[in-house]
Design a binder for these strands. Structure first.
Length: 502
RNA sequence: GUCUCCUUCGUCUAGUGGUUAGGACACCGGGUUUUCAUCCCGGCAACGGGGGUUCAAUUCCCCCAGGAGAUGCCA
C-alpha cells in the first residue's frame, strides 16, 4: 500500500515499479502439505493482487528423495485448489526450463564463474563425509580451502569428485529488510562454515540453485516460510558473489501443530490429499489456510478465492507462528457444505456413496436421484463429506440389530416401549408421511392420549427405523425408506421388545 | 551450545500512547427442536515478567524468561 501511494500506481506500464514475479518452488519429495500449500496460496494471491506473474518451479535437486507421485501431487493440488501457474513445467514460459534437474548446465556454468571470481572453491577433502539422515553432523574444518596443485591432482587421480563450497568471508555481516519481519542481520562468521553449493553428484544445493533461478527468472519477491530466515544471509552472500541484486524477501510465519512445534505428520493429517479424502471442500481449505498468518481486519473471515486474489496484501501478514486448528477448519467446512448448491453437493458426496458400495460407478441417474432426495435429511449434519456414510447407512443397508436398551426410553420398561412403538407406528400408517405437519400433529395427539411425552413415543420408533437413538429426522427418514421397509423394521424391533416382556 | 526470529483469550486474530482490549473457533449455560445437528441468545477467557521513557503504557526502548526455527553433499 505504501508503495502504491508513493508511486501513485502499480500499473507496470506507467510506473517504475518492476513487475511482480513470484514463485512457489516445492521439491517433489512427498505429498503437498498444509505448510507448503499455504506458501503456494500466498504467493498466488500476492501475484494476482498485484497483477503479477505466478511461477511454479520444481526443485528436484535431491535425486535420492525424488518421487514421481509427489510431482503429480503438486499439479493435482493446484487443480483442486483452482489455482494455476502462469509459468510452469506444464505451461511453459520464457524463463524455462522450470525443473531444476533440467538446468544443470546452467548451474555448472555459474559455479565456474564463482570459482573464477574467487568466491567459491572446489573442495576435495569432504568427499567421504557424506552422511545419512539421522547422523550427527561433523562441522567442516576448512580443510579444502587451500589445497596445493599436487594435492588436488592426487585427489583427482584417486577419482575423488569435489564439492563446490562458498568462500564465506570472516568479517562482515548481511543485512536485509524483510517485508514481514523488518530488518534482519547476521554476521558472516555465524554462517555455517563454507556451505556446499554443488554436491559431488553434480547437482546444486538448494542455496545455489534457488539464487541462480530466482535471478534468472527475474523473481521480484520471495515469499517463503520463516524456516528460511537463517539461510537468507547466505543467499545474499551468493547474490553478492555473482554481482546480482537480490529480490525482496517476505518470510511467512510457520504453521505449527497443537504442541507448538512445526506441523508434521505426527500432528495428524497434514497433507492436502488427506483432507480432500476426508471430505473437506477446496474452498473451505483455501479460506481456512488464508487465515493462517494473514487477516484482513477485525471481523471478516469468509473469503472466496476471488476475494483473496484482490484483497491479499503483504502488510497484513502476521509475524508470529500460527497453530493449525483442525476444529476451526471443520467448522469452516460445515459452513461451506451447508450452502453448497444441491447439484454440487450431490457430486461431492457421490464418491463416498460409491466407495461404500451403495451406488454404481459411474453413478446411474437413479443413484443420483436417490441421493438428492436424501440431502435434506443430512445436509446440516455434515461436517465433512465422509460423514455421509454413517449418516445414511440405515437407508442403504438393513438394520441388523435393535439394542434393547436403546429401544426403551429412559425410566421406562419394555412393555411400555412396545405400547408406544405400536401406537406410533399405527399413527404413521394411518396418516402417511406425505405431509409432515399432519403426521407430526397426529403423533402429538397420540402421545397425549397415552399420557406420555412425544419423545417416549418417538424414540422406540426412531431406534426401530434407524437402529440408533441418533438419526436424521424421523418422518423424512421413514418416507425415504418406504413404508414397506419401515414396517419390517418396526416388526423386527417389536420382536426384540416382545422377547423381553415374556 | 551457537545464531535468527517470535510473544494479545485454550486456538486463529483485531487494535490503540488514554478502549468496558473487539471478532471467530472451541468450551460452558439457555432457547428452538421428536434424537442428533443446524439456528438464536448469553457466559467464560488474553496484553509472559522486570526495568525504563511518559501526565499516561498492552502499545515506544532495554533486559530477562519462554517458544520456535536454523545449525546437512534435504529442501
Amino acid at each position: 500500500m505504501t508503495e502504491n501511494t508513493r508511486i501513485g500506481s502499480n500499473d507496470k506500464t506507467t510506473s517504475g515499479t518492476p513487475p511482480v514475479r513470484v514463485r512457489y518452488a516445492p521439491s517433489p519429495t512427498g505429498m503437498q502439505h498444509i505448510g507448503g500449500i499455504r506458501t503456494a496460496l500466498f504467493n498466488y494471491f500476492f501475484a494476482r493482487s498485484r497483477r503479477g506473474t505466478f511461477i511454479l518451479r520444481v526443485e528436484d535437486t535431491d535425486q535420492t528423495r525424488f518421487h514421481p507421485e509427489a510431482l503429480e501431487d503438486i499439479y493435482e493440488s493446484f487443480r483442486w485448489l483452482g489455482i494455476s501457474a502462469d509459468e510452469s513445467p506444464a505451461a511453459g514460459g520464457d524463463y524455462g526450463p522450470y525443473v531444476q534437474s533440467q538446468r544443470l548446465e546452467l548451474y555448472r556454468e555459474h559455479a565456474r564463474r564463482l570459482v573464477e571470481a574467487g568466491r567459491a572453491y572446489w573442495d576435495y577433502t569432504s568427499a567421504s563425509v557424506q552422511r545419512s539422515e539421522g547422523e550427527e553432523a561433523v562441522p567442516y574444518n576448512y580443510s579444502g580451502r587451500n589445497l596445493s596443485e599436487s594435492q588436488i591432482r592426487e585427489y583427482q587421480e584417486e577419482g575423488v569428485t569435489p564439492v563446490l563450497r562458498l568462500l564465506v568471508p570472516a568479517e562482515g555481516e548481511a543485512v536485509f529488510e524483510d517485508l514481514v519481519l523488518g530488518r534482519i542481520k547476521r554476521k558472516h562468521k555465524d554462517l555455517p562454515p563454507d556451505p556446499i553449493l554443488m554436491k559431488s553428484d553434480g547437482y546444486p544445493t538448494y542455496h545455489l540453485a534457488n539464487v541462480i533461478d530466482d535471478h534468472l527468472m527475474e523473481i521480484s519477491h520471495v515469499l517463503r516460510a520463516q524456516e528460511w530466515v537463517p539461510s537468507t544471509p547466505l543467499h545474499l552472500l551468493i547474490y553478492g558473489a555473482f554481482g546480482w541484486d537480490p529480490p525482496q524477501f517476505a518470510h511467512l510465519p510457520m504453521v505449527m501443530g497443537k504442541d507448538g512445534s512445526k506441523l508434521s505428520k505426527r500432528h495428524g493429517s497434514t497433507s492436502l490429499v488427506e483432507f480432500r479424502r476426508q471430505g473437506y471442500l477446496s474452498e473451505a481449505v483455501t479460506n481456512y489456510i488464508s487465515l493462517l498468518g494473514w487477516s484482513l481486519d477485525d471481523s471478516r473471515e469468509f473469503f472466496t478465492r476471488d476475494d483473496l486474489e484482490s484483497l491479499f496484501t503483504l502488510e497484513r501478514i502476521n509475524k508470529a507462528p500460527a497453530v493449525f486448528d483442525y476444529r476451526k477448519l471443520e467448522w469452516f467446512n460445515g459452513q461451506y457444505l451447508r450452502d453448497l448448491p444441491e447439484e454440487r453437493l450431490t457430486a461431492e458426496l457421490l464418491p463416498y456413496i460409491q466407495e461404500a458400495g451403495w451406488a454404481q460407478s459411474p453413478a446411474s441417474a437413479a443413484d443420483r436421484d436417490r441421493l438428492v432426495a436424501l440431502l435434506p435429511l443430512i445436509r446440516e449434519r455434515l461436517k465433512v463429506l465422509s460423514d455421509v456414510v454413517p449418516l445414511l447407512r440405515f437407508v442403504y443397508e438393513e438394520v441388523q440389530q435393535w439394542p434393547l436398551e436403546e429401544l426403551i426410553p429412559k425410566q421406562a420398561d419394555a412393555a411400555s416401549a412396545a405400547v408406544w412403538l405400536d401406537a406410533a407406528w399405527q399413527v404413521v400408517v394411518q396418516t402417511g408421511t406425505d405431509d409432515e405437519q399432519t403426521l407430526d400433529d397426529a403423533l402429538r395427539v397420540a402421545a397425549e392420549k397415552l399420557d406420555t411425552k412425544l419423545g417416549n413415543l418417538l424414540m422406540p420408533l426412531r431406534v426401530a427405523i434407524t437402529g440408533s437413538r441418533v438419526s436424521p429426522p424421523l418422518v423424512g427418514s421413514i418416507r425415504e425408506l418406504g413404508m414397506e421397509r419401515a414396517a419390517a423394521r418396526v416388526a423386527g424391533a417389536r420382536r426384540v421388545l416382545e422377547s423381553e416382556t415374556n
